[in-house]
């Protein structure tokens, strides 16, 4: 699996980090995690889950039939756990670097540049 992870992939793995979930629950969880910005459709979600399963990051947990509908639950594999942890660490460092620079910028505003010296 290519890194850095794309946002939908990152959010699917984040959703599954709490507990095994079925497709419909993952879609709802991703909507919540992204503050409603990202709404996966089932065709896209199951394609992503297939790719994550192929890459060994997600595993099938169990199957249930609820109200006559089949639900498959997916869980994060140990490899998926490690990938999500590494990606989270990478993002955390980026956020820390950006936060430190923004803080320094507000403490010491940049001096205005002058061309040709003072008249």
């Amino acid at each position: 699996m290519d890194t850095p992870l794309r946002e939908p992939t990152f959010l699917i793995l984040t959703a599954l980090a709490r507990e095994p979930m079925h497709g419909y629950a993952i879609i709802g969880e991703v909507v919540g995690l992204s503050d409603g910005r990202l709404s996966l459709r089932p065709g896209t979600l199951y394609g992503a889950l297939d790719r994550l399963t192929d890459a060994g990051l997600v595993e099938l947990d169990r199957e249930e039939t609820v109200d006559g509908r089949l639900r498959r639950y997916y869980r994060l594999s140990p490899s998926g756990d490690a990938t999500l942890a590494a990606e989270t660490e990478r993002l955390r460092r980026n956020v820390e670097a950006a936060t430190a620079r923004l803080r320094a910028r507000r403490v010491q505003p940049l001096a205005p540049r002058t061309a040709g010296g003072l008249a």
């Binding site: 079925h22 497709g23 419909y24 065709g43 896209t44 394609g47 509908r69 089949l70 639900r71 498959r72």
Partner: peptide, 30 residues
């Protein structure tokens, strides 16, 4: 069963046809 079940879970009450976005999603997924 799993894919159709998820679409039906997401479909609002009274919906009779898949939306154009659902059609595009399924064709792309296929």
């Amino acid at each position: 069963e799993e894919i159709v079940g998820t679409y039906l879970d997401l479909a609002g009450p009274g919906r009779r046809w898949p939306s154009p976005a659902d059609v595009a999603d399924l064709v792309r997924g296929g």
